[in-house]
Write a protein that binds this DNA or RNA. Sequence first.
DNA 1: ATAATATCATCAATCAAGTTGACTATTTTG
DNA 2: CAAAATAGTCAACTTGATTGATGATATTAT
Lengths: 158, 158
Amino acid sequence: MDNHLVFGELDLTSLLSLSFSSSINELHDKLSELGFGDLRPVHGFMFKCITPDGATGIELAEYLGITKQAVSKIVDFLEKSGYVMRQTHPTDKRGKIIVLTERGWLAMKVKDEILTEIEQRWIENIGTERMQMLKEDLTKLVYEANEGKLSSRIRPVW
Amino acid sequence: MDNHLVFGELDLTSLLSLSFSSSINELHDKLSELGFGDLRPVHGFMFKCITPDGATGIELAEYLGITKQAVSKIVDFLEKSGYVMRQTHPTDKRGKIIVLTERGWLAMKVKDEILTEIEQRWIENIGTERMQMLKEDLTKLVYEANEGKLSSRIRPVW
DNA sequence: ATAATATCATCAATCAAGTTGACTATTTTG
DNA sequence: CAAAATAGTCAACTTGATTGATGATATTAT
């Protein structure tokens, strides 16, 4: 049987999960090759939220869809690994601002380059216009599902 | 700022994750209302793999992207909750075949109905043709990422 | 035909990654 | 100014997975 037909039978939720994991797995395979083998998918999303000005623990927790303590633990690891730093909050003495280090900025840059390559290959597969429509449609679906609210809680369910 | 613009800035991996979680969250909200509040997302995917003829532990592990023991634990829970049964394998005395019970089939049917409703609403949002293209494009991307192999490992990374 | 090897499902132990509730210092609110 | 709320962290706990071993069975090699 033509395998393409088999995939054609996948329902939308399976397609979304597999597409997501495919791209993230490829990204991390390449990050490993480049010396960033200690990074997990959540780190990449955290870096994205942190740039360019830093982010608080609360902001990261909301964005990622995990608790403040979980964020704190991840930041502990990333700080120890040299990707981020905790800074005091400019206006709130209770608060901390998590910022990227030079190595963190490098990792972020490399990540973006790899994702651009992956997406470019996907564009060659389905065409520029179709990629544009794919993104627009997914954006509409997410927008509708969240009743117009800002996106957060990136962590996929399971 | 127009929130739509904000979403427009989401990268593809974020869009995929959020789309996935949005649909699964809505599904499980409705399943809870209908008395299936003890079901997790992985259960729905497991039911799908099981139908119509049952599945072995190995098949479920591969399909879901978790270990045989993790499957065994989940099957323990679902058996206790009345959704599945273990049967002896027809040709391999070592093996078991996991099948759905009447309640399992009902849950599967209700799940499919809810997902059809969600998808119908999404079709009303973006149009029949665009939904068709969305699925085709995601299928191509997953197919290419898996080098033409059959889909498995549904569990999203994180 | 038999022995060696591999496999299936399950077991117990372990681990990773998260959550919970409490705490202190600080900010906000009444 | 006092009460209430909040930010981040702590320790303990929970959840959901993995690991390696086991016994029964199947497959493979001789």
